[in-house]
Design a protein around this nucleic acid. Structure first.
Length: 298
RNA sequence: GCCGAGGUAGCUCAGUGGUAGAGCGCGGCCCUGAAAAGGCCGGCGUGGGGGGUCCGAUUCCCUCCCUCGGCA
């Protein structure tokens, strides 16, 4: 008789600029892993400097997946990410290696660990109509409507959070079921595998310093040209919001100086890092690792 | 040295005889098909130091210190 041993999957997450890429490669070598990016923006092609993709030297040492594989004009989202990631996990297991997820996108991590609800309940048409309606009336009024069909979801969503209100209404209109009910059914990796989650930590002021320095470095590496190239195409709803694009667009349009853009990118990156940390703090499965104590682990 | 203006939150500055606000910054939180997005919340303060008037001073008076302009 045999005891079913759960296979191991490791996550290494952390705020932007914490130094995940280097540590991930070291760890991957040690435990015979392949790396799967858990990053909503590094997935896109041609956004190398902008998203601080791992250096070529690192990419050569260990196979990396889900980096630079989608054209920035294409839509991509959590659901597709999950589908792609699950596929790659299987491939890696076939090679008798361990999947190592590395990145900072909290939602992607959460959807992987805990799953996403099955019914996709997606209709671009309906969504578009709802957004247009939200402009015509107000977000709280739309929220009132949600309250009638799905009070539980309405309670969770703030009246000003138009996006989530629209999404909840969309799901109901498409599937006929309240999103709050659908959301209860989800199965994730944490249910089937032996999952370990690590998060890099460091004092905020130190992280801010690293972020600021990295933004300076991005400019030296040619961020302005990279973004200029990107802006020649119509960027997808998702890709266009990578930090740095909107800011530099302001510069190209003559609305602000390059120095101002640089400060805005730093600022927005800092805010983003804080939001990331909020996400990670909430997840009690996470083991926190001092970024300085990078030496032994795994 | 004299004259004038001013010293209030991390910064720029309002305001009031009943122990203080605003913007920016900063911090916390939420998150299930756009997530580097989107949304919510929080004042974080020895009111330059000391003295006086007053029931009560950040506000009025005196004095000292500091900053900025002008005159020497």
């Amino acid at each position: 008789m045999s005891i079913a041993v759960k296979k191991k999957i490791i996550f290494l997450v952390g705020p932007t600029a914490a130094g995940k890429s280097e540590i991930a490669v070291r760890l991957a070598r040690k435990i015979n892993a392949e790396i799967i990016s858990c990053d909503s923006m590094q997935i896109y092609k041609g956004m190398d400097i902008l998203t601080a993709k791992p250096a070529l030297a690192l990419l050569r040492k260990i196979p990396h997946h889900l980096i630079g594989m989608i054209d920035p004009s294409k839509e991509y989202n959590v659901s597709r990410y999950r589908r792609d990631a699950l596929r790659i996990i299987k491939e890696i297991f076939k090679k008798n290696k361990t999947p190592l997820f590395v990145g900072g996108t909290g939602l992607y991590m959460s959807i992987l660990l805990d799953g996403i609800f099955k019914a996709k309940g997606e209709s671009k048409k309906i969504r578009k109509q709802l957004f247009e309606e939200a402009k015509r009336i107000t977000s709280p009024e739309l929220h009132d409507r949600l309250k009638k069909i799905d009070p539980q979801a309405a309670e969770k969503i703030h009246p000003n959070d138009t996006r989530r209100i629209v999404r909840a209404l969309e799901v109901f209109l498409v599937t006929g079921k309240p999103i709050s009910v659908l959301q209860k059914e989800r199965i994730g990796l944490a249910d089937e595998y032996d999952v370990e989650v690590y998060c890099l930590s460091m004092p905020l002021d130190k992280l801010y310093e690293k972020i600021n320095k990295r933004v300076d470095k991005m400019f030296k590496l040619g961020l302005v040209n990279e973004v200029k190239k990107l802006l020649k195409k119509k960027l997808s709803k998702t890709a266009q919001f990578a930090i740095g694009i909107r800011e530099l667009k302001g510069y190209f349009d003559g609305d602000c100086s390059l120095e101002q853009v640089k400060e805005m990118i730093k600022y927005n990156s800092r805010q983003y890092a804080r939001r990331q940390l909020t996400w990670f703090r909430k997840d009690k499965r996470i083991k926190w690792v001092e970024a300085d104590a990078i030496t032994q682990k795994g």
